[in-house]
Amino acid sequence: MKIKQYIFLSTLFLGLVSFTTFSESTKYKCMIQMTNYSGHGAYIVISLINPEGDYEKTLYVKGDDDEWYNTVEEWWKFYGKKRHNIDAITGATVAGGERAIEVIDIEDSKIDAGYSIRFETAVEDDAYVVDDVQFPLTTENIKGKHEGKGFIRYIRMMPN
């Protein structure tokens, strides 16, 4: 009787595992170097953008006062509707001339699959830059240095 139960449970477990997909991911160190500007610290949102150009996931938020999240306008249209829990992926704003290093987690299946990563910036009483840095998530790009268009001087990423 015990052998039959063992075989049944083993078969059930293997069946369940075969229908479960495990998504592997890699952690990347992301260094953000800001330009030398004066004023408030920048809110920075790092997002995963799908091949159609739509938001898929929030990877990190620099700026933990949710009162100002709506100043990151395009991201807010995505985040504000659903209000996903982002407590574990937030940190302080980054001021002019400063740098920040964060670790972000990206699913391996998104690399070389038409996805991109976007860094949006907003500074109180100043400006909002929807694509301060944006680049396709390719094996080569994810390990490189990318110049910013607004408050970000450049970002550099590398596997952690």
Rank of each mutant, 00 (worst) to 15 (best):
T138F: 09
H40P: 03
G148S: 06
D105M: 04
Y55I: 00
E56Q: 09
E67C: 15
D54A: 13
R83T: 11
A88C: 07
N70C: 10
I89L: 08
R118T: 07
Y115P: 00
E140F: 08
I89R: 12
I111N: 05
I32L: 06
W76C: 02
P51H: 01
S38R: 09
A42S: 09
I106D: 08
F119N: 01
I44V: 11
E147L: 13
A42C: 05
G96A: 03
D126N: 14
F22V: 14
E74C: 08
A100Y: 06
D64R: 13
S116Q: 02
W75C: 01
I86H: 04
Y37A: 03
T93Q: 11
E120K: 02
D66V: 11
S109Q: 12
N50C: 03
T26W: 05
Y79Q: 04
N85Y: 06
I104A: 01
K82E: 14
H146G: 07
F78L: 05
T58W: 00
Y79N: 00
Y28P: 03
F135N: 05
E56W: 03
V129I: 14
K81Q: 14
I101S: 12
T35L: 09
E52C: 02
S23M: 15
Y115R: 01
K145E: 14
Y43I: 12
E24H: 15
G53F: 00
E74L: 13
H84N: 15
Y69I: 00
D112T: 02
V45N: 11
V130W: 12
P51F: 03
E147I: 13
G80D: 06
G144V: 02
E67T: 15
G53M: 00
Y37K: 05
R83W: 12
G114F: 07
E74W: 10
T138L: 07
A100W: 06
Q134T: 09
A100E: 13
D54H: 10
V123A: 07
E140N: 12
I117G: 05
D108E: 14
A127T: 14
I111W: 01
V72H: 01
S25N: 10
A100K: 09
I142L: 14
K62A: 15
A127D: 15
H84V: 12
G53H: 01
I44W: 00
P136T: 02
D65T: 10
T138M: 11
H40Y: 13
R118I: 06
S23V: 11
I46R: 02
H84K: 15
A122V: 11
I46C: 04
K27N: 14
Y69N: 04
Y37T: 00
E67K: 14
D64L: 07
N36T: 08
R118S: 10
D105K: 07
G148N: 05
I89S: 11
A92D: 11
Q134I: 08
I111K: 02
I111Q: 04
N85A: 10
A92H: 11
G144F: 06
N70F: 15
T20V: 08
N36C: 04
K29E: 15
I101N: 13
K145V: 13
Y28R: 04
I117N: 04
Y69S: 06
P51S: 01
T71R: 14
H146E: 09
M34N: 08
Y28F: 12
N50M: 07
K29G: 14
Q134K: 09
L137V: 05
A95P: 11
G91N: 13
A113V: 02
K110R: 13
D65S: 08
K62R: 14
T93S: 11
T58G: 11
